[in-house]
Nucleic acid binder design. Structure first.
Lengths: 202, 202
DNA sequence: TAGCCTGATGACAGTTACTGACATCAAGAC
DNA sequence: GTCTTGATGTCAGTAACTGTCATCAGGCTA
């Protein structure tokens, strides 16, 4: 979404978002007002002042309007993994990467909450979110392998890391007292260690 | 799918599957022959000898035809968790439950491979599979809580367990030498322990 | 046996997501 | 002052799904 374009302001000096920005805004509002299934693409387009066809020129489908900047997180995580100290064990690498990349969640907390509420209310949007997480896991696996982590360990660390992210996010969302995302990650990872550490008695 | 109905045979003594069974079979064939996106519901219905409308009487949507008996696994896992010895640590409970419930994969290996190939080839089907896994995780969490495992630990153990399942399944599918599913679970879980066990040096 | 009930199906119309092709139009380049 | 380019409108079309009603076969009851 390139809706934050400094080049266009209205006479009063406020933003005059482009079509994509208005569409994204309209969609978020409508999904919140009447639910995802109950709003048609035509509704969104009309509120944004464009035609239905224009919606599909900016977003691949009705869901994608909520997943536009979803690459940001993945790119941040991958970069943080590449930049981590060479001797850090894999799970630790993933954990710290999630902490760093998740900082931008703390910034946009209200938007993140709105978005997450819309997603939580609809299975179709949940699916899209889960696919995004699966892609994140694949990217993390690749980033770990690029550091020399062998294939099986990389896969396990990536899946575990994404699981930690998911749980940390949930915790972050439902925590009234705006705890920083990074500390949710740390707590969750510590719990995973506690559960996995004691080897079975057999 | 109630297509295995002993009450109906043709004169030669072979199965005469009902509409749901024929639809499921036709869909699996067509998805393999020309891909999920390239086959219309009308195609499936015609091959099964019914109308389009009848397809939707048996399956909620075009994807659901591949996810019909998907509850079997979840029910098995939940039952195995409930039946596990009381003193077993949570992650161990989930691991053994996955091993037990996954036995039926070894039986239906060829079907499982066909199905998994179709899913792997299409993002929309992947999403549906991921949602199924998310529901499995939720069910596992609930089953652990019912055993008295506290909320945070139950969530972490469930997500970790499902991550192990996912990886074990992948390993099982791509292993030419028909390794039993249970041993894939054990190996993957061992790797998770190895990664998580050593606490960070800090 | 006749009548009835029920479950599965066909037939049909309608909504909505999405796509392709072509026309238009304003803003900047030359 | 044209010319090009990018964004948009318009329109036609496909296909996933849904609601509604008609039909029809099998089984049950009087």
């Amino acid at each position: 979404m390139s809706g934050n374009d400094i080049t266009r302001m209205d006479p009063v000096g406020r933003w005059e978002p482009d079509a994509a920005g208005r569409l994204a805004q309209a969609a978020l509002e409508l999904y919140a007002e009447r639910g995802f299934e109950q709003t048609t693409v035509l509704d969104i387009a009309e509120r944004a002042g464009v035609t239905e066809r224009t919606f599909f020129r900016h977003f691949a489908d009705k869901r994608e309007v909520l997943f536009d900047r979803s690459n940001t997180l993945q790119e941040g995580v991958v970069a943080a993994i590449a930049a981590a100290p060479a001797d850090l064990p894999p799970l630790e690498v993933v954990g710290t990467a999630m902490e760093q990349a998740g900082v931008f969640l703390d910034d946009r907390r209200t938007y993140a909450l709105q978005r997450s509420a819309a997603i939580a209310a609809n299975p179709s949007l949940q699916e899209r979110e889960l696919l995004k997480m699966a892609h994140l896991a694949a990217a993390v696996t690749a980033a770990l392998r690029a550091r020399g982590v062998p294939a099986p360990a990389a896969g396990v660390a990536a899946q575990a890391g994404v699981a930690v992210f998911r749980l940390a996010f949930e915790r972050w969302v439902f925590n009234p007292a705006s705890v920083p995302f990074a500390s949710c990650v740390r707590d969750t990872l510590a719990e995973l260690r506690a559960l996995a550490a004691p080897p079975p008695a057999s």
